[in-house]
Structures are given as C-alpha cells and as structure tokens.
Design a protein around this nucleic acid. Structure first.
Length: 569
RNA sequence: AGGGGUGUCGUCAAGCGGUAAGACACAGGCCUUUGGAGCCUGCAUUCGUAGGUUCGAAUCCUACCACCCCUGCCA
C-alpha cells in the first residue's frame, strides 16, 4: 500500500476519470513495477477525427501524467484497406496535436513473425486448429445471439496436421479464403467472440510494409493484445464496443508465454452534436462530393479542423473538458466552439475587415487625405503591440451595421445618429443614396474631427462602435463562412428512416467574394489565427481565390448576444 | 442460451454510507472604443423506477424499467 497518492494524475490538474483512478490503484498496488505505458493504435485506413483526438489525448495524457510512455502503433493487420498515405496523415495529425512518441513508432506488422510463432504455439498446445469451412459455413456454425454454435468438423484435427496445414497456409499452397486458423475455445459461449474465433486468414494482398512477404494475416483480436504484450503496454485503452472482446484479449495472453500482461480498459467514444463521426459516413460525404475532401473545414476530421482554424491547444482543452466515462453520450458542439474562442481570444491578433461592404463617404473629410490611426493588436495582451490603420474619406462598413429604420435597441448606424468608427472618429449619417431598386448604395456621413482616436473631448458618449476599412487601401479577399454541417443534433441516428445525408445544412458554407480587409492582413500567414473585430475568428487558407485574392476561413463567430436576442424575437 | 455495458441538471461530468463539485448552455446584472473579452448572480431538496437495510443512501441489497454493443475470414 502506498502511504501517499502516487505523483501525477490528480494533483497535476489532470482531470479525474475512472481510468486515471484505476491506474492510480494499480500503481498503489505495485502492479507493472510502477510502470505506466499506453499506446494509440489507429488502423491506417482513414483520416483521424476529433473522436480520435479524445483517445490520443487520453493515452498520451495519461502516460505523461503518470510519468510513463505512450507508443504510436499502427494496427495494420488488414492490407486490403490500409495505405501509407493514411499512415502519413495520422502521423502528421498526432504530431500537430502536440504529442511525441519519440522512437516508439510501431506497427503490428513488425510482429508478424512473432505472432506467427505464437499461433504455432497455440496449435502445438491443442488450442488452435486449421478449419476448412467456408466463410458462410463458419457463420452458420457460429450460432446466433440466443443459440449456441456447433463445433467445426475440423475442430479435432491433430496438432501435427494443423501444424503442417498452417505452415502450408503461410507458404501459399492454399487459395485465399479456403482455410483459416481458429482458436479452440467454446462454441457454446454466450460471448460470440469466444466461439472459436478466426485468428488467421489467407489473403494474397500486398501489405504497405511487408510487401508480398505474407499471404496470411492475423486478425485484430489475435494481433492487438499480443502486440500490446510485446510492447510492454500496461493499460490498453479502447472503446466500448471492444468490451465483449476483453475475455478473448485475456485468453490469448493467458495461453501464451508473452513478456507482459497488459489489461484492457474501455471508455465511451466521443459523439459530437450536429456532425457525424463514423468512418463510413465521413467516407460517404467525401466520396459523394457532399464536402470538398477529408480536410473540408466543416468536417470533424483533424485536418478539417486544422484548416478551419482550430488550434491544437483548443482541441486538447476540449478533450480535457469532456471527461472520460463509460456511458454513451453526445457532447454539445458549443463546448468545442467555446474551447476555440477561449484559446483564440488570448492569442489571435485583431484586425478590421468588412465582409458585406456598404460604402460610406465622409463628406467633410478632406478629399485625398489618408491618415494612420493607431489600433491595438490584442486587448487581452498589450505585449502584442499596436499597428497603424489607414483612414480616408471613402470607407466600407458592414451592411448589417446600418438600418434605415431601426428598432430602439439597435446601437449601430441609422440616419441622424452618431456612432464611433473603431479607433477613428464619431460619424453621423446624413443621408442615404439608393439605386433604382431601392437598394442602399452609399451612406453620406459627416465626422467630428475632435473625436480622433474614438473619444469625444466634451465627454459625449456613443452607443455603438463599428468596424470599417478605408476603400483606397483595402485588400480584396474571399471569405468562407462555415456553419454546422447538419441541421439536426444527431444526424447519424437515422431513426426516422431518413439518411443522414438528407440532414445536411444547405447553409453550411457561404462564400463571400467581395470582402475588404485592412492592409495589414495582406501579410497574414496561412494557418495563423486572427480575429476580425466584431465578426469572429478567421484563418487564412493555403488556397488562393481568383487573381491571387487571399481566402480566409471563418473558424467560429464571436459570441453575439445581440444576434441571439434578435433571433429570439 | 444468450452475453456484455450504461442510467446524477438542457449537454458533458464529479461523487465510492455523512447529507448533490465543476464545465458548457441558459437567464439576469455590472463593465466596455469589439453588442467581443472580463466580472457578479441565478440555475438538480434530488441522483431511471419501486421497495428494503441504516441514525443517515446517488452511494449497500432486491426487483423492475430504459437505452447502447455483440452473430466480418473488419478494426
């Protein structure tokens, strides 16, 4: 018994959860010689998403909190669906999230020879046999959820024959699918995973790492736990659907002379509202062109979130907040949005940008004059300094910031009312020019020279502050506004019979091609988060619009109590 | 002949027999040269239901109910 709680989790700000508690208990009881070793085990057959981020943060976070290690191990036992491209993107995403697996990048395929020897051992011990039943027959023999299965006619094959057959399977003497190696456990088990599970299949498919070296490949259940054991993993953390596999996981480890005894612990995978997380559904969105690719900024993939402007810090903070438990749950996407806003508020430089421009002419401002006004880069951090923003007679303001007939609580521009242009002057709207359709084309205003910088020496106050961009020096840009991809909180449920693709939000992407940015934004680097004041957080996309126009993606809007209240009315 | 899980605020989630943390959301207020940020306040007499044990139960016992997962030579 430990006199005091082991160092690490609990007193380091690591959120308490049942897995951390379990590890703490294991440590207190002296298990694993005080070691904590986890692993993140993706199959390289798709892109990582925010659900994987939860697992990554958990596995790497736990290891770090307890002074242990976390391996990156690719579970590459099924070459028919795995590719190096996925390996590369997974590696990049994990690193981008801020985790380091050092030299410990492993592959289940690294252990194919050892795994094969383990299988041979099982055969020698009479605990595995080569079965000639077809896939369909195996299914029939397996029984159902409520009825036991029947023994395969090949179940009692002598060890010597099994050994010979298995060697010839490896040697390529048999056709794909003609035979499998099965563990001999219990065809009557209530747990279907224990009904003589297949542990090796024949497949003449080149493997992304081992090439054509093998034509038999181990199944997940056989390879996974044994790989854990080979790597000295102490806590093998996986999702709930593998709970039923735990007895099998333990069975292999108990039967074989493995170097360590890892234990499997399951937790609930992440579900996020207004999106889908399953590989199948994400793949469908990508393949059917419903989104623009795996890194579409509306997708919950790591690459999509990155392109959308999410930071690793925000994602990790989110993962810390959602907790870890065993109950199926659906996390409100608002929590993710909160996490980015919180992070970006601290670090994003502020700029002025007008998305839906409305021209303003300051009639009493000297024609041709341009002056430089000082603006604060980040009010949350004076250390980020100041910059100059050009002001001139002709400007753009946001169309939404003007209303000809405004309700009482509308604090923005309206005929006859004075408002502040941020960091500039108080202006008053004198008259409105319209085109033949009655559409407002220009606002004619006057300014008060005494209010330079944005405050009046006579102490008079103004209710609203608007963002603006001087017309002559403005940088043209394309801005993409993203919203949730689906209109329903749980589009993937499909309980109403409607496929999830019927629930796509038609307004999830709005492209604004005629936006104006203050000149300083021309140098914004792709991937560097910025705030457009009063609008939200944006990030420059690596892509360019026509004529080299910069493209900005909206990460998330600012909280907008005005809009929220207006929407309620 | 089925097996394995889970049920605590709108959403996550602590709690481990001593009298319901926290976060997001929401609602008010303060402040404000971003209707941003920040600050303050409110928000489960109740823990799936019903019994029981106990001085005392979300925590222990019993029964019931609801939901999730499992019949790939996928992971």
């Amino acid at each position: 018994m430990a006199e005091k709680a082991p160092a690490g989790a609990g007193d380091e700000g690591w959120p308490e959860n049942f897995i951390a508690a379990r590890i703490r208990t294991d440590l207190a009881e002296g298990r694993n010689g005080g070691r904590v070793h986890t692993r993140f085990p993706p199959e390289p057959n798709g892109f990582l998403h925010i659900g994987h981020a939860k697992s990554i943060c958990l596995n790497f976070g736990l290891a770090e909190a307890f002074g242990g290690l976390c391996n990156l191990r690719f579970d590459d036992t099924n070459p028919t669906r795995e590719e190096v491209e996925y390996v590369d993107s997974i590696r990049e995403d994990v690193r981008w999230l801020g985790f380091d697996w050092g030299e410990r990048e492993f592959y289940a395929s690294d252990y194919f020879e050892q795994l094969y020897q383990y299988a041979v051992q099982l055969i020698r011990d009479g605990k595995a046999y080569v079965c000639d039943l077809s896939a369909e027959q195996i299914r029939e023999y397996r029984g159902t959820l409520t009825e036991p299965g029947r023994n395969s006619p090949f179940r009692e094959r002598p060890a010597a024959e099994n050994l010979d057959l298995f060697a010839r399977m490896r040697a390529g003497e048999f056709a794909d699918g003609s035979r499998v190696l099965r563990a001999k456990i219990d065809m009557a088990s209530g747990n279907i995973n224990m009904r003589d599970p297949v542990i090796y299949r024949i497949a003449r498919v080149p493997h992304h790492r081992t090439g054509e070296q093998w034509c038999i490949y181990p199944m997940y259940d056989f390879a996974h736990g044994l790989s854990d054991a080979i790597e000295g993993i102490t806590h093998s953390i996986c999702t709930l659907e593998f709970q039923d596999h735990r007895p099998l996981y333990d069975w292999f480890i108990e039967q074989l002379p493995v170097p360590s005894r890892p234990r499997q612990i399951e937790f609930a995978r992440l579900n996020l509202s207004y999106t889908v997380m399953s590989k199948r559904k994400l793949l469908k969105l990508v393949e059917e062109g419903l989104v623009e690719g795996w890194d579409d900024p509306r997708l919950p993939t790591i690459s999509g979130l990155r392109r959308r402007g999410f930071t690793p810090e925000a994602i990790r903070s989110f993962c810390d907040r959602i907790g870890v438990a065993k109950r199926n749950s659906m996390v409100d996407v608002a929590l993710l949005e909160h996490a980015v806003r919180e992070d970006l508020n601290r670090r994003a430089r502020r700029y002025l940008a007008v998305l839906r421009p409305l021209k303003v002419v300051i009639e009493n401002y000297p024609e041709g004059q341009v002056e430089e006004l000082e603006a604060i880069n980040n009010p949350e951090d004076e250390g980020m300094g100041r910059r100059k923003v050009p002001f001139a007679r002709e400007l753009y303001i946001e169309r939404d910031d003007f209303m000809e007939e405004a309700p009482r609580k509308f604090h923005r521009l309206t005929p006859g009312r004075e408002v502040r242009l941020r960091y500039a002057y108080f202006i008053r709207c004198e008259r409105v020019a319209k085109d033949d359709n009655g559409e407002i084309t220009t606002l004619y205003c006057t300014y008060d020279p005494a209010t330079r910088g944005g405050s009046a020496p006579d102490g008079r106050k103004v209710k609203g502050t608007l963002h603006w961009v001087a017309a002559s020096t403005a940088v043209k840009a394309e801005v993409r506004l993203y919203d949730r991809l689906f209109t329903e909180p749980d589009p993937g449920a499909e309980k109403d019979g409607r496929p999830f693709t019927d629930k796509l939000n038609p307004h999830s992407l709005e492209v604004l091609e005629n936006c104006f940015l203050e000149p300083a934004l021309a140098e914004a680097a792709a991937g560097c988060p910025v705030q457009f004041e009063r609008l939200g957080y944006f990030v420059r996309d690596a892509a360019c619009g026509p004529a080299g126009k910069p493209v900005f993606n909206r990460t998330v809007t600012l909280r907008d109590t005005w809009a929220r209240k207006a929407a309620r009315r």
